[in-house]
């Protein structure tokens, strides 16, 4: 039970960065982006290329992949979503669906369907208070915590962070307060891309690298963001931990194959009964 809870916490922590990306993107762009899973996959494979194929240590490989993904996301937005900006949520959601197909299958094309792993030294798992842990999980906790702290500072202390929150709150007011929306959108994609890249690498460390790796987490990540309240960064953090722990604990009562059922039900229940989630605020769409 304790072990399961710990595993759940780790799963939750892995999801905090992608959930934050989802919530930031939703806040600024006003639609749920279904391509985030595949974006994590592509970034993870980029890190894999640097790490396992070129011999870079994982940390610089991840950093490079993060910068690359952030830049790539800006480009993707420019080509795919910008022409559709005025069209409304459904169009953008469908486009993101198509984008997800493209990205995941680029990874599949390049690396095939078999599972890969990062090149990191194997370390012995250890036990603390009857709970088995390993080094990858410690790294996950450390990296995610550091990233969350950085994001907190960015969102609350920097002008761009404030601008992002302002646009999420009220886009037209942001315009007349001098905030240029294209710039905010670019920064949001860049940051989201970096968060998704780190999330992808953490997934790759926790499980394995294979083309559906990111999409497998899509539903859980969205559940986390929705539970926390779409648009609320604090909510993304809390939501991810809750979904992670509850999903793992549910395997004690529900057949393991239905693990995904928990986040699915959570999404349905929350959107029907309390769409703003735990911390979400009402916001202005236009």
């Amino acid at each position: 039970m304790l072990q399961t809870t710990f595993n759940g916490i780790i799963t939750g922590v892995i999801m905090t960065l992608p959930a934050l990306a989802v919530t930031l993107l939703f806040g600024v762009l006003k639609f749920p982006n279904f391509a985030v899973g595949a974006m994590m996959t592509v970034a993870a494979y980029m890190a894999f290329a640097l790490n396992a194929q070129l011999g870079w240590p994982l940390l610089p490989a991840t950093a490079a992949a993060a910068l690359a993904m952030g830049t790539l996301c800006i480009g993707i937005d420019h080509v795919t979503f910008k022409p559709l900006r005025e069209r409304g949520g459904i169009t953008l959601m469908v486009a993101s669906l198509g984008l997800g197909f493209i990205l995941e299958n680029i990874a599949r094309f390049a690396y095939g369907n078999s599972a890969r792993s990062f090149a990191i030294e194997l370390a012995r798992p250890f036990r603390i208070a009857d709970v088995r842990m390993n080094q990858e999980q410690m790294i996950t906790l450390g990296v995610s915590t550091a990233a969350m702290i950085l994001m907190y500072l960015l969102l609350t202390r920097s002008p761009m962070g404030r601008a992002m929150r302002a646009v999420a709150d009220n886009p037209s007011l942001a315009l007349v307060r001098g905030i240029e929306s294209p710039r905010v959108i670019r920064w949001t994609w860049f940051i989201a891309g970096m968060l998704l890249a780190v999330g992808g690498v953490l997934i790759g460390m926790d499980r394995a690298l294979e083309p559906p790796m990111g999409s497998n987490y899509l539903i859980s990540v969205f559940a986390a963001a929705i539970l926390g309240g779409l648009g609320s960064p604090l909510g993304a953090f809390v939501g991810a931990l809750v979904i992670g722990v509850v999903s793992e604990l549910s395997t004690l009562v529900v057949p393991p194959n239905y693990r995904i059922g928990v986040p699915l039900c959570a999404i349905a229940v929350i959107l029907i009964f309390r769409p703003q989630g735990l911390f979400g605020h009402p916001y202005i769409r236009k």
Partner: peptide, 19 residues
Amino acid sequence: YNVFRNLTVLENLQIAREF
């Protein structure tokens, strides 16, 4: 809807000043 409701008073003023 002439203020950013999810931001503090200070943050509203900061945004105005910064942008």
